[in-house]
Structure formats: C-alpha cells, structure tokens
Design a protein around this nucleic acid. Structure first.
Lengths: 359, 359
DNA sequence: CTGTTAGCGCCTTCAA
DNA sequence: TTGAAGGCGCTAACAG
C-alpha cells in the first residue's frame, strides 16, 4: 500500500506538502497540488486514517454509545434506526464512527470516557443511557462534546446538545384525540419516571386533560418502565378493579403488553377499550388491531445528532437543541366511546359487550 | 490522559516493559508486572488503541461490510442482528470493529479494500454483498481474510470462510411439510437466481418433490429477488392463470408480498392457499395469519462470523465453513389440503370456497 | 528480565 | 510556497 512518502517521492515534493494538499491547505501552488493528486491516483493512495488520527490535533471521529440493544425487546429496533442515522450523518462529513454497544446484562461495564480517550474520539452521541449512570456522570466531568438522543439535560458550562422530538405536543395530541372521542375513563401507562421523554409526555397528557377541564388521577397512572412485560402485568392488575375505556401508553412496546392483558381479560380493542402507543415500531402496523400511535423518525434523529455533534466539535459552541418532526398515526386501536360505556362505573369485571369476544 | 510514558516513569521502568506487561509477554518479573499494573490503575491508564493499531504488526481490528441496510425494506432487520452478533464476537476477543454500511442508492461506492487498508483492518466480514460486485472481486485479489455470511464460495488459494445455516435441509423440510399436508399444486417464489442461499433452498425443494415422486415444473417457479414488491407483482400475475394451493417463499419478505397478492385476489390463507416463508422476521409472528417459516439465528451467525474470522487471522488457516442451527417454525399459514382443492384444475379465477371471503 | 532504538504513517510547527 | 524535524503513543527487534 502506498504511503504518503511514496507519493511525495514520486511527485518530487516533501511529505508535508502532500499532507497539506490532502488536507486542503491553501498555501500550495495549484500546479504541485495537481501533480500530487495525479500521482496519488496513479499510486492508488489514500491517507491512512489510523495514522492521521494519531498525529492530528483535529478530532475526526465520533462515537455512538447505545444501551439496551442487547437486553431489550427485539421488537424494538429504535437503536438500529438511530445507528443508521448517525452513520449517515458521520459519513456525510467524512467523520469516522466508533460504536459502543452496552450490554446491561454484563457486569463488566466500561467507562465511556475511557472508550473515547482510547480511540481519540472527539465527540460522543448517547442513546438510551441513564443519566444516573456513574459513567455518564464521569463523562459529564470531561470536556468531550456530547449529544444526547431524547434527553434534554440542564447541565451547564459544558458542550452538550440534544436531539429529540416534540414529545409534549404529540402526547397532548394523543390525549386530546381520546378525549375528543368521548373517552373519560382513561388510564395512562407511563414509562420510567425520571426520564426526559416520560416527563414531557406526561405534561402533554395533563395539559390535554386540563383543556377539557379534567384532571388526571394518580391512581390511573402506571409506570411501565417502557417495558412490554411490565406494562402487561400492571394492566392485568389494574383491570382487576377498574375498567377504563382507553389506555394511553408512552411506548408501543408497552402498548403491546397492554393489548395482551386487555385481550386476556376478554375485552375487545377498540370496541371495549381504545389503546394508543408512542414510537411507531415496525410491528405496530401489524398488531390486531393496528396501533394508533406517534411515529418518531429515529433515523433522522440519529442523523441530526451526528450533524449537531460535528458542528459543536468544529465551532466549540454549546447547548443546542434540535427537534425532529414526529407524526400522529391514526390507525385502528381507537374508537369513539359511546355514552353507555362512558357512564358505566368502573367495575370489577367485563362489560356486557365483551363477554362473547374472548380471544 | 496518562500515556505509556507516564506509567513507565512512575513505575521506574522503560516504556517497552510497560508495553510488554500490557500485552502479556511472559518475560517480565512478577514484581515489576504487578508494580506496573498498580501504577496504571493509579494513573487510570489504558493503552491508546489508535497508537497501538498503528505501531503493531498484529491486526486487532475487523471490519463488517454490510449492504442493503439503507435501501432495503425496513421490515428486514437481519443486518442489525448480524451486526449485533459480530459486535459481540469481536468484543469477546477484544477486537475492534469497524463498520461499513453500503448505501446502494448512492453512486459513490468505495473500495472495500481501500476501506480495510485505510483503517488497518486485518479481516473482514461480508454481509449481503453481491459476489459479482467489482469491489468484491478486487477484495478477493488481496490477502485480507474474509468471512461471508450466507455465501459459500468456491474461491481457492485464499483465506476465506463462510457462516450459514442448513438452507438445503430447512428448505426440504418446508416442502415436505406442504407435501405431507397433501398439497400438490405448489408454486415456488424463489429469490435471486445466482445466489448461494437461493440455490441451496432450491435444491432442498426439488429433493423433497423427488422423494414424493414429483417434479417441480419451471413454470411454477418465480424469482422474486428476495423483495416484497417483486414477489407481490409476480404472484398477482401468476394468479391470473393459475391457482396453486400453496406458495413456498424463499424469504419472509417475499411471503408478505405473496400474502398481499393472495388476499387481494379474494383467497383466504390458509383455507384456500397455504404459504411458507424463510428467515422468521420480527413481523412474521404478527401477520394474518402468522407465518409458517424457518427461523434463522442471524445474531449467532454474526457472532460465529467474527469468531471464525479471528481464528483465521490468528492461525492463518483457510477455508472454514460454520453452520448455525435454524428451526422450522410451524405457525398458521399452512393447512391440510383437501381432496377437492387438490383435484381442482388450475383455473382462471377463484375457487368456489373463497368467493365470500374477500378481505 | 530490562532498556535502547527505531519505526508505524501522518500532521504540524518553524525556517527558509 | 516548500522542506526539515519532531512528535502522536505504542510496538518490536536487538542488545545487554
């Protein structure tokens, strides 16, 4: 493989000139520049990225740290979409990308900071990590630029950005949709309490209730930790003493769990119970019934993260917030709530409508 | 960040001793080794991978080149599973992983070989790439060890391995399953003709027919190129002049296309037509009806690829073939073919059974 | 067992 | 506009 030396020798110049030519320095005569590129092409030379990375001051590689890829539900391919987006964004500006997938099952976690230092990573994108993680905290004490996906932090004095979507607005829309469909007995299956997206979505729900002059009761809010099984069990229990006409779920995954529990109870969706999700995973278009939810463009979020990070790395400027569009997807899991259903007291059991439809 | 020098100085030894200690060379006294590790821990030192990579003869990074991630059907998350597997396998033996995702839509392809050289990649895993690709051919003319997923090549004199599953056996099992369920009017929606897995699966199908004293007619074999839409259109056309009682599809994606075409024709699955797939994608458990198919463990295939590649890189030994288990998943898209259906001539239209069930 | 020396391939002052 | 020299952080002979 040709090295910079070979090109230099063949072009009759010194290494440094070749280096400058390849890095678009202006202080090179057009003639030699051309000569160098000609020779390079002839020798099929491209700079070695490893050596470049080692010697250069400039940071041209970014990292993606993603958690929950291994342990989580395989139905969840969000991380993959983010990864594709980040890759695309990095590619666009010719940054190298190094990925770090965290397997939360394994004990031997590694320091994010270490990960960056060891690879000369100049900036990092964080996806699905917990802000109470010790390695996250450690990272926050460094000066490595960070972009977080779906987390907006209040950390000051630090190069940190966020990419997310309008969780508040979308969530409000979902709740209003249900409210407008005459639902009043609504249960909320929220995610993880301390989480940014959860609190945004919760605000949205509450706001919608408010606008209808209603209040959301604590006992109708469950915390499913964004997990299908957890949501399933919570719903099972909930249904033993209450029967809402609708469930608002803060993730599709949880909606699947709720659907299962609801069906097992012998209730029909959406005839007896309406259900909404959030995310629009692949499967949501294939569930029975198809899930009404909020589509998030995770690919775009990944891409924007990479772009934002690169910009931060180059300009050394701080705190940016980028929003990516989301979209309310009205499908088949929500139906108008009739007066009878609406007036029925919460009961310990099934409504008369549903007895025949156990699936 | 602490460098090797800092450790050396603090431990009162030279750089090379520290280097050796960290690379587990035996020629170091237990005492100094211990001393070095102590100091390293104290200084929070870990070797810089970039520098290591540059200076070392040993190749400790592998690459994954995957195609079709961007352009293909988003229902297909196979590449992602492979990626996770490769990552896990690399991680296990402390290899670095560099990924190269090919966007076939973009014109500006890059040389695989270049990709490897530029990053000092010592071995490469290929997934979803075409063997008639010019860059693939170029790569084959180098001495870079390769492992291919789901491609078994006949290239000689070269460090090359393959990881796949028993496509022949699984495919045979599928066909026999249909045959045993009394189906005789069977159409095959094959994939891409020149492809390894396609030919293996085809052999399996033929073998099963043979064992039943039957022969597969050319006119009942379509080539859907593993694409949902292609399969959909082929099936639409096919159904205009023939009505099989079963479709064997060489991928789930194509099965979805076939299902759609079949339903649009007003035929019921599996009452009128049985359908089988191959791969067991996420959605196949949620289609209507749930798809009978062959589950492939793509994660394991990715992992085994990484392991095999590493072994090849270390031992310089050649041509290995690793099989990963697959599993026949009997679900709801296949049903026993009754005598009436079986005897019906291929007709230009629907059977009498299905007229009422247009969905 | 340990230190010395010379790179790996490139970038980056500093002088010319 | 160019060249020389030093260095990025580490490994790898080769002495000792």
């Amino acid at each position: 493989m040709a090295t910079i030396k070979d090109v230099a020798k063949r072009a009759g110049v010194s290494n440094s000139v070749v280096s400058r030519a390849f890095n678009n320095y202006p202080d090179i005569s057009e003639k030699t520049r051309q000569k160098i590129f000609d020779v390079a092409k002839e020798l099929n030379y491209t700079p070695n990225i490893v050596a470049k990375n080692l010697s250069s001051k400039k940071q041209k590689t970014i990292g993606l740290i993603a958690s929950g890829i291994f342990t989580e539900n395989t139905k969840d391919t969000i991380s993959f979409e983010v990864l594709k987006g980040v890759y695309t964004g990095a590619q666009e500006k010719e940054y190298e990308l190094s990925i770090f997938l965290i397997d939360s099952l394994k004990q031997e976690q590694k320091s994010y900071t270490q990960f960056c230092r060891d690879r000369k990573i100049g900036g990092i994108i964080l996806q699905g990590i917990r802000t109470d993680d010790r390695y996250f905290k450690e990272l926050m004490n460094t000066d490595i630029p960070c972009v977080m996906v779906d987390v907006v932090s209040d950390i000051e004095n630090r190069l940190i950005g966020s990419v997310t979507s309008d969780n508040y607005g979308a969530s409000k829309k979902v709740a209003k949709h249900l409210l407008e469909h005459n639902h009043r007995k609504i249960a909320v299956v929220a995610g993880t309490r301390e989480t940014y997206v959860n609190s945004e979505r919760f605000k949205g729900t509450k706001k919608a209730f408010e606008e209808f002059g209603l209040e959301l009761s604590d006992e109708d809010v469950m915390y499913g930790e964004f997990a299908e099984e957890k949501a399933y069990y919570l719903t099972k229990t909930y249904l033993e003493y209450k029967q809402p006409t609708a469930f608002i779920c803060y993730s599709d995954l949880m909606a699947y769990g709720v659907m299962r529990a609801v069906k097992e109870k012998g209730l029909r969706i959406p005839e007896d119970v309406s259900i909404t999700g959030f995310d629009d995973l692949l499967i949501s278009n294939f569930t029975q019934p198809r899930l009404t939810t909020v589509r998030q463009d995770f690919f775009e979020m990944g891409k924007q993260s990479a772009l934002l990070l690169q910009q931060m790395m180059e300009s050394k400027e701080g705190k940016k917030l980028v929003y990516v569009e989301n979209e309310f997807m009205e499908r088949d899991s929500v139906r108008y709530c009739n007066e009878k259903q609406r007036k029925d007291e919460y009961s310990n059991g099934q409504t008369e409508y549903s007895n025949d439809y156990i699936t």
